[in-house]
Design a protein around this nucleic acid. Structure first.
Lengths: 335, 335
DNA sequence: CAGCGGGGGGAAAGCCGTTGCCTGATCGGC
DNA sequence: GCCGATCAGGCAACGGCTTTCCCCCCGCTG
C-alpha cells in the first residue's frame, strides 16, 4: 500500500507539500510541483489512509446508526430518510444491525464511540427492562459527555433528542374504526411484550376499543410473518366467532392472511384484518391490507436532522402523526 | 474524550501497561496493576480510538461490501449470507449502497481502500459498458496489487474470485416450462438492458423457448414494482392474445399482477405470470407467484468465504444452481 | 555469596497524515 | 544596491495506540 511518503518521494517533494496538494489545502503550491504530485498519485494509485487522516485531523464527519435490521422494510424505509439527510449534509453513515439484542446495541454504541462518530442515531423500539435501559443510557451518557450527539427514533426512555411515531394514536384510530363498524369479537396479534412499541400500540388499541379487548384475545409473537401466522392459528382456536384481527405490524398481518386463506375464511367477508406500518407489501397482498401509515422516512430524516444540529441544551422531542389507510381487508362483521 | 494516556495516569502505570491490559496482550501483567487499569477504564468510560488502533496495528479485520441497495430484498438476502460468514469469522462489515451507479461504485471501492479493509465484496449485476468496467477494474486491480482480496457476486467481468447465480439456467427452466405447457404468445418484462443480469436471463429464456420470442415482446424496465407495472400495461397493448408473461424479477412480477388484476384478467386462467428470484413477497401475493429460486444467502456466504480465504493464486469461480418453484400463477394457456 | 535467568514494567519508536512555524529565495521599493 | 516584505516549501511536532527493546529486580543455582 503506497503511503504519502512514497508519493512525496516519487514527486521529489516533501510529504507536507504532497499532503497540501492532495487534500486541497488553502496553502498555495506551485503548478509544477502540484502537477508532479498528482502524477505520482495516479501512478502509485495512492489513496490516503482514512485512519491516519482521522487521527491527524480530528474532524468527525461520520454518523453512526443502530437499527434492528436494515433489510426489514420498516427500518429500510426509516434508513432511507436518515441517509437522505446525511448525504445532503455530506456525512457518511455507518449502519449497525442490532437484531433487537440489547447487548449488541450496547456493543455497537461503544463501537461507534470508538470510531469517533459525530453523532449516534438509535432507531427502533425500546425495551421495558430497566436494567437494559440503564446500561445503554450509561454508554450514551458517556458518549454525550464527551461531546457526542445522540438522537433516538421510536424510543422515549433515553437521553438525547427523540423523534416518535404516533403509535398509540394510530392504534386508537384502528380501535375506533373497528368499534364504528360494529366488530365485537376482536383479537390482536401483538409483537414481543418486551418492546415499548408493542405496549404503546396495545394501549392505544385498548383506548380506541373502549376496553372491549379481553387479555386472552391478545397473542404476543415475533414481529414477523411466521410469528403472525402462528398467532393467527392459535387465535382462531381461542376466540370463537372472531370477526376482526388487528396485527401490530404488516408482516404479521400478511402471515395472518395466509392462515385465514388456508382455513378457507374470506377476508374481509368472514374476518377483517388490519395491519400496522403500511409497508410496501401491504398494497400487494390480496385483499390489499387496511393499515396505519407511519411517516417512516420522515421520522428518519427528522432524527438525522436533530442529530446533526447543534444541541441548544435541552433534549428535543418530536412526534409524527399516524394515518389510517383504507384498503380492502376491513369491512363490517358478517351479520 | 478520554485517551489511553488518561487511563494510564489515573491507574498510575505506563501507557504500555495500560494498553497491554486493555487489548489483552500476551504479555503478562500483575493482577494488581491489571485491576487498577480496569478500574480506571470503567471510571473514565474509556473506549480506545479505533483509528489510532488501526494505525498502530495494521491488522485489517474489516470487510467492505458494495451492493445495489441493502433494503432491496434481493440484496438483503445476499447480505444476510455475507454477514453470517463475516460474523462467524469475527469480521466487521461495512456496507455501501451504490444504487447501481457505476461512479458511486468506484467511489466506494476507493473509500474502502482508504479504510484499509481486508477484503472487498462487490455484489450485483455487472454492466455492459466497457469504459465503466475498465475504471472499476483498474481500482480493484490497485487494491488487489496492494494485497487486498476481491470477490464479486453475480458479475463475471472482474478480477478476483467470483460467485455466480445460474441466471441463464434459471431462465431456461422457465422457457422450457412455458413451452411444455403450450404457451405461444409470451411476453417478457426485462430489467435494464445495460445490466448483464438482464441479458443473461434473457439469453437463457430465448434458449428455453427455442427462439419463440420476438424482440417486440420484450420490454426493458426498472427492476421495480412500478417498472413492472408500466411494462405490463404496454405489453398488454402490444401483444394481442398474450397468454404468459415472464418478469425477470419478482418485484416487476408483482407490479404486473397488479395491472392484470386492474384490467380484470385472471391469473393464471387468462394470463400466466412467472417471476424470478423467489423473494419473500412471491409467496404472499395472490395468486402465489411461480418463480425461480436463487440461493441468495448461500451466494453471499460463499463470496465472503472466498474473500476471506487466502488466495491460492488464480481466481476461483463458482456457480450456484437455480430452481423452479411451482406456485399458483402459472398454468396452461386458455383454450 | 556471586552469577544467571526470567518475568514484569516502562521508554520510545513507530503507524500515516496534517499543519504551525521557520527558512530561503525572490521581488519590490527606496 | 540594499533591506524588508512576501511567498513557496520543508521540518518537525503532534494525534492515540501498539510493540519492540531494554532495564530492573527477584529468585534460583552452583
Amino acid at each position: 500500500m503506497a503511503t504519502l511518503a512514497d508519493v512525496a518521494r516519487r514527486a521529489g517533494v516533501s510529504p507536507a507539500t504532497a499532503s497540501r496538494v492532495i487534500s486541497g489545502s488553502s496553502k498555495p503550491v506551485a503548478d509544477e510541483l502540484r502537477e508532479r504530485v498528482l502524477r505520482a498519485v495516479a501512478e502509485l494509485r495512492y489513496v490516503p489512509n482514512a485512519h491516519a487522516q482521522l487521527l491527524a485531523r480530528p474532524q468527525r464527519s461520520v454518523v453512526g446508526v443502530v437499527v434492528h435490521d436494515v433489510s426489514d422494510p420498516y427500518f429500510a424505509e426509516l434508513t432511507r430518510g436518515l441517509q437522505r439527510v446525511a448525504t445532503e449534509r455530506g456525512r457518511l453513515v455507518i449502519i449497525c444491525n442490532s437484531y433487537r439484542d440489547p447487548e449488541r446495541e450496547v456493543e455497537y454504541v461503544d463501537l461507534l464511540r470508538a470510531q469517533q462518530v459525530a453523532a449516534i442515531v438509535l432507531a427502533g423500539s425500546g425495551y421495558h427492562d430497566p436494567a437494559v435501559n440503564a446500561v445503554l443510557d450509561e454508554r450514551l451518557g458517556a458518549y454525550a459527555a464527551a461531546g457526542g450527539r445522540v438522537a433516538v427514533v421510536g424510543r422515549h426512555q433515553h437521553r438525547g433528542d427523540a423523534v416518535l411515531p404516533a403509535n398509540a394514536e394510530g392504534a386508537r384510530l384502528i380501535g375506533g374504526e373497528l368499534r364504528r363498524l360494529g366488530h365485537r369479537a376482536i383479537a390482536v396479534i401483538a409483537g414481543p411484550a418486551t418492546l415499548t412499541t408493542t405496549t404503546d400500540r396495545l394501549a392505544g388499541l385498548h383506548e380506541g376499543l373502549a376496553g372491549r379487548l379481553p387479555a386472552e384475545h391478545v397473542r404476543y409473537a415475533d414481529f414477523t410473518r411466521d410469528g403472525g401466522a402462528r398467532a393467527m392459528a392459535e387465535l382462531l382456536d381461542a376466540v370463537p366467532g372472531l370477526t376482526a384481527v388487528v396485527a401490530l405490524n404488516d408482516s404479521m398481518a400478511v402471515g395472518a392472511l395466509g392462515v385465514l386463506r388456508g382455513r378457507g375464511l374470506r377476508v374481509p367477508a368472514d374476518v377483517s384484518v388490519v395491519g400496522f406500518d403500511d409497508m410496501p407489501v401491504a398494497a400487494d397482498v390480496s385483499p390489499a391490507l387496511t393499515t396505519v401509515r407511519l411517516p417512516l422516512a420522515e421520522l428518519g430524516a427528522r432524527a438525522m436532522t436533530l442529530a446533526l444540529e447543534a444541541a441548544d441544551g435541552s433534549d428535543r422531542v418530536e412526534t409524527l402523526p399516524a394515518e389510517l389507510v383504507h384498503r380492502d381487508s376491513l369491512a363490517p362483521p358478517p351479520t
